[in-house]
Amino acid sequence: MTTVQTQTPPRSTSKQISRFLRSREIPVASALIVLVVVTATINPLFLTPQGVKDLLLNATIVVILAIGQAVVIITRNVDLSVGSILGLVAFGTGTLFAVYPGIPIILVFLIGMAFGAVLGAVNGLLVTIAKVPALVITLGTLYIYRGLNNAWAGGTQYFAGDRPRAFSNLSTDTIFGFPLITLLAVVVVVGVAVVLAYTRAGRDLYAIGSDPAAARLFGIPVTRRVLGAFVASGVLAGLAAVLYASRFNAVGATTGTGLELDVVAAAVVGGVAIFGGSGTVVGAAIGALLLTTITSALTALRVDKFWQQAIVGVLIIAAISVDRLVSLNRARKLRVSEARNV
């Protein structure tokens, strides 16, 4: 008679699995999967190749903006001006092609990202130098940037026909069935996730968000890091703006209006703590995909637009409430542990 010995996984592996299952991204990803399955069951046309392509394209811009927003929120700040930055840079993109028809597309991307970096740097400098809450500063720059765009654009709009076909094709070309600009968004997600997880600058952002005063005591350059977070948000908003100009038919004075609320919602729903110090850009990307999928799914199910907005509002409240409860629970466990060690 032989006995079969079973090997239990190493404790470290068990801890990693347990940590993964407790991660904030799991509930969001699960909700996304359930939503897609239910919608596809009721309306099979929802997951046709064209339907999936449209779904990914609709999410791409918000995903890139949510990544930049997540970087800022992790530092216990927020950037409400991203919609206005996108509008300003998108109209600038249309202007570039109108003034310089033969301009290389890669140069347009670089100029757009540099333009976004400058606008993001203005936000960062005002927040770090004036010591005014980012909510107030970026609410002000939201209106300033929008006003500049209105003054610059006026009634002018640039349409798809005003841009090179190769530029417009960026949002229609696919690789293995996936839109090119969506694959670009995936590269951005992976790149920023690696920076946050494996570089000192990335870890510093989490430390700042957890406790800015303690971060200063440990020698972390808080001002420089927070400024860098706003610049990064501006760069990604500039990138999203150029892709927006490629994706949509027209850009003008109203481009990007109200988009900042969707972006903040995506980051928060994706598990980025509004109080700073925790969350991932992967979660923010999944949150953006979930919110855009909700809109598409409810539209496919012919649900009134009011309920679409109401559901997004419920998700935001739920995400913030859960984050608060988790924080209180961790604080309670820490107090109990300290009491036992005394």
Score class of each variant (00 low, 15 high):
206 Y>A: 00
145 Y>C: 07
167 F>C: 10
137 I>E: 00
193 A>R: 05
30 S>Q: 10
236 L>T: 07
268 V>Q: 02
183 L>K: 03
258 G>I: 02
333 K>L: 09
230 F>A: 01
176 F>H: 09
72 V>A: 00
208 I>P: 04
289 L>K: 03
222 V>T: 07
134 A>Q: 01
303 V>G: 08
237 A>D: 02
119 L>N: 03
91 F>K: 04
197 A>Y: 10
135 L>A: 13
203 R>M: 03
289 L>V: 14
190 V>Y: 12
16 Q>I: 08
263 V>R: 00
18 S>I: 13
13 T>Y: 15
243 L>A: 04
220 I>Y: 03
196 L>S: 02
184 L>H: 03
279 G>H: 07
82 V>G: 03
116 G>R: 09
43 N>S: 14
58 N>I: 14
50 Q>S: 15
89 V>Q: 05
210 S>I: 06
249 N>T: 02
193 A>F: 07
129 I>V: 12
30 S>K: 12
93 T>H: 13
169 N>Q: 14
80 L>Q: 08
284 A>E: 01
2 T>G: 08
40 A>F: 15
215 A>I: 06
87 G>Y: 12
311 I>A: 03
33 I>Q: 08
262 D>G: 01
108 V>E: 02
212 P>E: 02
46 F>P: 14
254 T>A: 02
307 W>E: 01
220 I>T: 05
300 A>C: 08
122 V>D: 00
69 Q>Y: 14
334 L>F: 06
149 N>F: 07
16 Q>H: 15
234 G>H: 05
277 G>R: 12
254 T>P: 15
92 G>P: 11
215 A>K: 02
193 A>K: 05
16 Q>E: 03
5 Q>I: 15
315 L>C: 09
217 L>M: 07
77 N>R: 06
10 P>Y: 07
342 V>Y: 08
58 N>D: 15
75 T>M: 06
180 L>H: 04
21 L>G: 10
189 V>W: 13
19 R>S: 11
5 Q>Y: 11
66 A>S: 14
14 S>V: 14
203 R>Y: 12
166 A>E: 08
132 V>E: 06
329 N>K: 09
304 D>A: 08
219 G>D: 00
69 Q>P: 15
174 T>P: 02
117 A>W: 12
278 S>R: 15
335 R>I: 05
252 G>L: 09
145 Y>S: 04
121 A>M: 11
331 A>S: 10
259 L>R: 10
170 L>Y: 11
100 Y>K: 00
317 I>C: 06
93 T>Y: 07
220 I>F: 05
120 G>Y: 04
287 G>K: 00
126 L>C: 10
256 G>Q: 03
59 A>F: 14
19 R>I: 06
50 Q>F: 14
297 A>L: 06
110 L>I: 11
333 K>T: 10
200 R>I: 13
158 Y>Q: 11
210 S>W: 06
258 G>Y: 10
159 F>E: 01
223 T>Q: 02
292 T>K: 05
258 G>H: 07
68 G>N: 10
62 V>E: 02
191 G>S: 09
293 T>A: 05
131 K>Q: 15
292 T>C: 05
44 P>K: 10
149 N>R: 13
293 T>Y: 12
52 V>S: 13
40 A>T: 14
177 G>M: 07
